[in-house]
Design a protein around this nucleic acid. Structure first.
Lengths: 209, 209
DNA sequence: TCTCTTTCATAGTGACCACTATGAAAAGTA
DNA sequence: TACTTTTCATAGTGGTCACTATGAAAGAGA
């Protein structure tokens, strides 16, 4: 019995004439710019530099392509965001880094303004239920992770017992979502960073534990 | 020279067989639920209880219908939101009421979760530029109004001179946007109200002026 | 009742959507 | 070279989109 074929092993038949990762990245940027439902396959093929049949053989269909872009967007590194939140020195520090990183990420050069997860499909038809569910799952996972981290800090005395872990986590993620819209509306990086710093005043300062 | 014909004056020809305001309200709810681009005219006519030709003679086209729904949504009362913000007792109080009202509005019964302005078209194709511009105008107007109000409070000594009016206003409107997404993701009214109260900790307390 | 104006329901219109059938072309294997 | 496998480009497919042409029906004024 053979092991699973590695991705670098040469396969039979005519090889792909395009770089799959580059094409995926181009699709990601297109979805990022124009959302899921409103992006047409014609726009995708043009952005990716390939024809429709190539897209379908390489990525399945439009929905699968988007979900793969989303997976790559949400997990660019070895660790997931919930893992990074859990491993932060405190919930407060996780929130502060999350807000500052978002402010920079949503206003970076050479990428569309705002956040793919926040703006791809805030509302939509029943055809795109799976896509919206995937987006909601990412948002929920990050929010719950921050809430769990805050609950732990309360238990361990790093946050005061009067703190509301759910409210702090929800507020922080609401600001991330809102910064995406602001970035799309043209608010710049400096303003978003000021916003992030101001929002952190709502978090109680960490206590020695 | 005659005066402009009043809306209640009987016009020549066969009268409308449906209540225009009720049909407009039904369209508003449909757009609220499923956004602008992803809502089809077929869905609209079904929700409004009229046929396509009736919709087009009464409201123009899909874009005009949406803009009319948006106008009605954004200005339900005699005063606009920017006016209400300007006339509040302080920027802080305006922000607090804005957040609390949003928390309740986004989770009301007999209406879709979230905010029409926040979720109708966060991203989209170039076909809907006018619609997205109209949505952005509403968001910008509200944010600028709150910022101006905060600047006035700083000048008049109601807020400390170290306060950042732009950051406070942007943060508050970001939370409004974010609460809309949270409401759509199923977060309830109590959680949003707790969130709103927590966020107000980022505002400096009003000083006697 | 007759005329005029407007709205009504039926039944489409071309355009664009996601997606694919088809066969030639490009590689590896023998 | 011959054969197999896969991708390529061309040219569509049916379905759905926003929107409308057409003529009957419904009211007001004479």
């Amino acid at each position: 019995m053979e092991t699973l074929e590695s991705s670098t092993a040469k396969r039979l038949g005519r090889p792909l004439s395009f770089d799959r990762d580059k094409a995926l990245h181009a699709a990601q940027l297109q979805f990022w710019r124009t959302g899921y439902e409103t992006t047409t396959v014609a726009e995708l093929t043009q952005a990716m530099g390939i024809t429709a049949p190539s897209l379908y053989t390489a990525f399945g269909d439009k929905e699968s392509l988007f979900l793969e872009c989303l997976e790559k967007y949400a997990n660019p590194g070895p660790k997931t965001t919930p893992e990074l939140i859990a491993e932060a020195r405190s919930a407060r520090e996780a929130a502060q880094q999350l807000l500052e990183l978002s402010a920079r990420w949503f206003t970076q050069r050479d990428a569309p303004a705002g956040c793919l997860v926040a703006s791809a499909a805030s509302s939509g038809s029943i055809d795109s239920q799976r896509v919206r569910a995937a987006l909601k799952n990412i948002r929920d996972a990050n929010r719950k992770a921050l809430q769990k981290r805050a609950e732990r800090d309360i238990r361990e005395g790093r946050l005061p017992g009067t703190a509301n872990a759910q409210a702090l986590a929800s507020m922080t993620m609401a600001i991330v979502q809102g910064m995406s819209t602001l970035a799309r509306d043209g608010v710049g990086q400096k303003a978003l960073l000021d916003l992030a710093r101001t929002a952190m005043r709502a978090w109680p300062t960490d206590m020695a534990s």
